[in-house]
């Protein structure tokens, strides 16, 4: 029983990172009906940028901020170079194009920083916290990860509910034609959405990096988990992305702890399949049919 609880506690910060990546996917999906498979590639690229900044300056926080800025810029570049020209094609074409971007980014990182896995320095104490006479499977760094995630989720929900750009984003996602007729410059709003998703993905990348290594392909597995969480959460729902992201972290931790970490992706895909069979709109998704 103790180990069961330990695995659950240990999975929370991992789940927080999955939740962030799932949020990035949901942001793009809501606005454009495209699943951006390049999101982990963008996050991997910006994490390498962060690693460079961290190596040069020694500042973890500065590296995080630079990665966020780089994430925004890269998101805008991907949208302009790939998604805008693809707009007239159907969305499945655009989704395949994002795979192309992922492969291109992996190649670019290999050329710039090399293909070998590199260690990302540990910014905070990563040893289990000692309290009540035992070592807990959660570290100071895990609390930082969870804290940053909570802050970002709060900031995003305030952005969406309290600001003009948030209202413009929601309106553009729900009904772009009515948004345009209301005077909202929808294409600019979409670009902002890509930048925002890039920022969120970049944060996820920097947060997860110390607990793994960084190489052009290390984050691919994060895509599997984030995509699963986003789809089961309903793809449209930020709440769903957060809830299912954290849930995925717990499940992975349990499966890895009780059996073997290689089984985690299999379990994720089984859950994805079950969800698509039993609840294709997702747990938090609302049904698409609307009265006319």
């Amino acid at each position: 029983m103790t180990s069961f609880i330990d695995y659950l506690i240990g999975g929370v910060s991992n789940g927080a990172v999955i939740a962030l990546m799932a949020i990035a996917l949901v942001l793009i999906w809501r606005a454009t009906r495209v699943v951006n498979f390049a999101q982990v590639g963008q996050a991997m690229f910006t994490t390498f940028v962060a690693l460079t900044v961290q190596t040069l300056t020694g500042s973890w926080a500065l590296a995080l901020v630079v990665a966020m800025v780089a994430g925004a810029i890269l998101g805008v570049i991907v949208q302009f170079l790939v998604l805008r020209p693809m707009r007239r094609a159907d969305t499945s074409g655009a989704i395949i194009a994002t795979f192309g971007v992922l492969i291109a980014l992996q190649a670019a990182v290999g050329m710039i920083w090399g293909g070998d896995a590199q260690a990302y320095p540990q910014p905070f104490d990563n040893a289990g916290i000692v309290a009540f006479g035992r070592i807990w499977p959660i570290s100071v760094y895990d609390f930082v990860v969870i804290g940053v995630t909570i802050l970002l989720v709060i900031a995003l929900s305030l952005l969406f509910t309290r600001t003009s750009i948030g209202l413009a984003m929601r309106a553009s996602a729900f009904n772009p034609e009515v948004a345009r007729l209301s005077g909202v410059r929808v294409s600019r709003v979409l670009t902002f959405g890509w930048a925002l998703a890039g920022v969120v993905g970049a944060v996820a990348g920097v947060l997860v990096a110390p607990s793994s290594t960084v190489s052009p392909t290390t984050f691919d597995i994060l895509l599997v988990f984030a995509f699963t969480a986003a789809v089961i959460g309903g793809l449209d729902s930020l709440v769903g992305a957060v809830a299912l992201g954290v849930f995925a972290g717990l499940v992975i931790s349990l499966v890895s702890g009780l059996s073997n970490s290689g089984n985690a992706p299999v379990v994720a895909l089984v859950l994805l399949a079950l969800s698509l069979i039993t609840k294709p709109d997702g747990v938090f998704g609302h049904h698409k049919a609307r009265a006319v």
Partner: peptide
């Protein structure tokens, strides 16, 4: 929100 949208600019 629907109303606000109409004059957001």
């Amino acid at each position: 929100e629907n109303l606000r949208l109409g004059g957001l600019w």
